[in-house]
């Protein structure tokens, strides 16, 4: 990809991404780190066409995203959003949403819940009444039920306790190992980024200021921004203009 994305706020051009350039190897996990508002979520949205770049192009398996049939692209490039929005209805309705949209057989909902350590009794509960952590896991399962080949995770474990987050981590990594899933994982949790990433990109103020193999990124950061991040001296709101 090589993209620019801007929006107009109060009559002024506000750059969400400025000349982001990079590529992801299939079957690898890329962790995206950086301050809040740096443009990480925008970057994910460009990959499944929920947003379009103002300049540049995003290629998925050699095809620019705007050349893909939209439904096919979004089915194969799944996004788990930062806010775990529940669809109206029960947990079962949410887990079956993708299958119903594509007129396919409904998934094994009980088996899905087991994957993230949630009890089957939850299936009949109204999804809107769940806790933040439960919603986050249901949102992940809802996307996984669509069998994506690329998974875009936007702070997908931010509301989970350590134990639940580890279960989700293991689930995603197992899909990577067993099914060759490719993952772009936005996180503020540097320990998580280090644990799960094959490669890490640091996004600051709409630019990727450093992209290296994860071990090298954390052990031997090259840019001043990366050094400050690794030392814990980069404030969460610093260097952020986009979303």
């Amino acid at each position: 990809m090589d993209v620019h994305r801007r929006i107009v706020v109060d009559g002024r051009d506000r750059h969400l991404l400025r000349g982001v350039n990079g590529s992801v190897t299939p079957g690898r996990v890329v962790t995206l780190v950086g301050p809040s508002g740096a443009g990480k979520s925008t970057l994910l949205s460009l990959c499944n066409l929920l947003q379009t770049p103002d300049e540049g192009a995003v290629f998925v398996w050699g095809w620019e995203v705007r050349q893909w049939p939209v439904r096919e692209l979004r089915r194969r490039v799944g996004l788990v959003m930062q806010q775990p929005v529940m669809l109206p209805g029960t947990v079962a309705d949410n887990l079956a949403a993708a299958a119903r949209l594509h007129a396919e057989a409904e998934p094994d909902n009980r088996g899905l819940l087991r994957l993230v350590g949630l009890p089957a009794e939850l299936l009949a509960r109204p999804a809107g009444a769940l806790s933040g952590g439960e919603k986050q896991r249901i949102a992940l399962l809802r996307t996984l039920a669509n069998r994506p080949e690329i998974l875009l995770l936007d702070e997908a474990t931010s509301a989970l306790d350590r134990e639940s987050a580890a279960v989700v981590e293991e689930l995603v990594l197992r899909r990577v190992r067993d099914e060759g899933l490719t993952v772009l994982w936005v996180t503020h949790d540097l320990a998580l980024a280090r644990r799960v990433g094959d490669e890490t990109w640091l996004v600051v103020d709409g630019r990727v200021v450093e992209q290296r193999p994860t071990a090298a990124f954390f052990d031997d950061p090259q840019s001043e921004w990366a050094r400050r991040l690794v030392r814990g001296h980069l404030a969460p709101a610093e260097g952020g203009e986009g979303t």
């Binding site: 929920l50 439904r71 979004r74 799944g78 959003m81 806010q83 949209l101 809802r142 996307t143 669509n146």
Partner: peptide, 13 residues
């Protein structure tokens, strides 16, 4: 809008 975005992201028409 958020609900529509979830559905679209799952491949809804």
């Amino acid at each position: 809008r958020d609900e529509m975005l979830v559905l679209l992201s799952l491949g809804a028409t």
